[in-house]
Simulated scan of single mutants.
Amino acid sequence: MPHDVRVTLPSLPSLSSLPAVEHPELVAPPVATALAGWAGAAEVAVVDIDPDLADTAAMSEAYGIPLTASGNCVIVSGVRAGDERIAACVVRADTRADVNTLVRKLLDVRKCSFHPMDRAVEETGMEHGGITPLGLPPAWRLLVHDALLDEPVVVVGSGVRRSKLLVPGRLLADLPGAEVVDGLGR
């Protein structure tokens, strides 16, 4: 990007936005690494929040953020012929990931369930309640709810509970490995 082009960071009225690439101390290490290597990162903001309010419902209420502007990242897995298949599903917070039908078919597994939280935390290097679609293990699929792409600002985890990332919805489709899925959230 030329130096004379200024990027306007996404913001929400109740939170102070900082450039995420300039504040790696506010995100988990794998997220900082992913931001440093992603062209879209210049348009991503990070905001400090109370870690006790990291869960979506509490955060939405405390900071006045509509659920339609939040993206929940859930990790699911299944096994096919001894091969474990894992996907991160980013869905609009007013919906739930269609794990038992759509995601199961996309992963081509007989049974799909939520990945054990202790494993998700260990394998991502992120905190419970802060797992985000940036900086995930490269072998994992990243499924993005199509409805999020229309949101001007989407709040997602930062890898830690004490902050969140603000991402223009359209950029979620540009995350490394992202697969936009119609109707992922129901």
Rank of each mutant, 00 (worst) to 15 (best):
R85K: 11
V121M: 09
L35P: 00
P19I: 06
G125A: 01
D118V: 09
S14A: 14
A97G: 12
V99N: 08
D48M: 12
A97R: 01
A20T: 00
R80E: 09
E61A: 15
E61D: 14
V27N: 01
S60L: 08
N100Y: 14
T68W: 12
V74W: 03
C89M: 09
N72M: 07
V99C: 09
I86G: 02
E122P: 04
G125E: 03
E61I: 03
D55R: 14
R80W: 06
L102Q: 15
V47A: 12
D118Y: 08
T56D: 00
H23K: 02
C89N: 06
A69T: 14
T124E: 05
V76T: 10
G78M: 10
T95P: 11
T56N: 03
A34G: 07
D83R: 14
A41Y: 04
V21L: 10
D108N: 13
E127N: 07
A93L: 09
T101P: 10
S11L: 09
P51F: 12
W38M: 02
G71C: 03
P116K: 09
V103E: 05
D94M: 08
A36P: 05
N72S: 04
A54N: 12
A42D: 05
A120Y: 06
V46I: 07
R80A: 10
V46N: 08
R96M: 14
S70V: 15
K105P: 15
C89F: 10
L35S: 01
L12Y: 06
A20R: 04
P66E: 07
R80D: 12
S17V: 02
R110N: 13
V90T: 14
T56P: 07
A69L: 08
S77Y: 04
S77K: 10
T95C: 15
V121Q: 07
I65R: 01
R119E: 13
A32N: 07
E43L: 05
E22W: 04
L12K: 00
L26M: 15
A88D: 03
L67H: 04
E122G: 05
P29F: 06
T33N: 12
A88F: 01
L15D: 03
A88G: 05
R104K: 15
A54H: 09
G82R: 00
L106F: 14
I49M: 01
N100K: 15
P30E: 06
A41F: 06
L12D: 02
V21R: 13
D55F: 07
C89V: 02
T56W: 08
G125N: 11
G78I: 09
D50C: 06
C73D: 00
V79F: 06
